[in-house]
């Protein structure tokens, strides 16, 4: 059995076997979570539905505490899957994103590229896309036609996508709980070794310089600010259109509206709404 086997069933079986090994007590994982992830993430855009379903089960079986360090990498694959050609893969990828938000929501919205790039992918998925319009206006005076591939699967898929976006924004705009005052914290930050990998990532000391999209948005305020500047108008317009459709899409859009409004009762955007 091999995860790169040609036949679908073999791949599914392989993933299932790994799932079993990980979820057994005590878990049997000689390569560690990172080893499993680096091998299995490419399967996110696997052609077979059953393999993808099994993969999601495997991810759920992974110990949540160990996933946090790999969020950035997982998100790259998720973004690749969200804009995949096949609508089925797009939908399944959203399930993985949901899992990731469950397991390591804070890391997802605050890692490098995690905030803006993911929203970008969402908007492209939903067809609420300002950049495509601007790219096409130079060619003529009519507006670009509506996307066909992403929304063709009907209202269920779109509702699912809007729900996922709502969930994502909710996590991003969640008010942070104030850190309880600890007398040792001051000294810990000076003398203790940090417990998380790459704790000074936000300084970007050794990487290539980041642009706006790749930047890390560590706290709620900065996330709100950049969302406000770049995406709020677009998403609000799209949401209005979806709400008017009614049905499941409308309901999902209403949830999205709640998430948006929830995001704007913070101190920085208190003046609006």
């Amino acid at each position: 059995m091999c995860i790169s086997a040609k036949s679908d069933t073999q791949r599914r079986e392989a993933v299932a076997y790994i799932t079993n090994q990980i979820s057994s007590t005590p878990p049997n994982n000689p390569v560690g979570t990172s080893g499993v992830l680096s091998k299995l993430l490419p399967l996110l855009s696997d052609a077979s539905t059953s393999v993808r379903a099994q993969l999601l089960k495997l991810f759920r079986a992974l110990p949540p505490s160990e996933v946090g360090a790999h969020v950035e990498k997982i998100l790259m694959y998720i973004r690749g899957g969200m804009t995949h050609l096949s609508p089925d893969i797009r939908t399944d990828t959203l399930a993985v994103l949901d899992w990731l938000l469950d397991v390591a929501g804070d890391e997802v919205v605050s890692c490098s590229g995690g905030w803006l790039k993911t929203i970008n992918s969402f908007s492209s998925m939903l067809g609420w896309n300002p950049s495509v319009g601007s790219a096409m206006t130079s060619k003529g005076w009519t507006t670009a036609s509506k996307a066909t591939l992403g929304t063709k699967k009907g209202p269920e898929a779109q509702a699912r996508q809007i729900q996922a976006l709502a969930r994502f924004l909710e996590v991003g705009f969640k008010p942070e709980a104030p850190i309880p005052v600890q007398s040792a914290a001051y000294w810990d930050s000076i003398y203790r070794l940090p417990t998380t990998p790459n704790p000074f990532a936000y300084l970007n000391l050794f990487g290539i310089p980041r642009d706006e999209e790749n930047e890390m948005y560590l706290d709620r305020g900065s996330r709100q600010r950049v969302f406000d500047a770049r995406w709020r108008a677009t998403i609000a317009t799209g949401m209005e259109g979806a709400r008017k459709e009614g049905g499941t899409v409308g309901r999902a859009a209403a949830a999205l509206g709640r998430a948006l409004n929830g995001g704007f009762d913070g101190p920085e955007s208190g003046s609006e709404n």
């Binding site: 492209s124 067809g127 495509v132 060619k139 066909t148």
Partner: peptide
């Protein structure tokens, strides 16, 4: 190219990822 701009943009994002 005009009608498929959205599809292309999706693939552009996929390429970027």
């Amino acid at each position: 190219p005009r009608s498929y701009a959205q599809e292309f943009y999706d693939q552009w994002l996929a390429y970027d990822a």
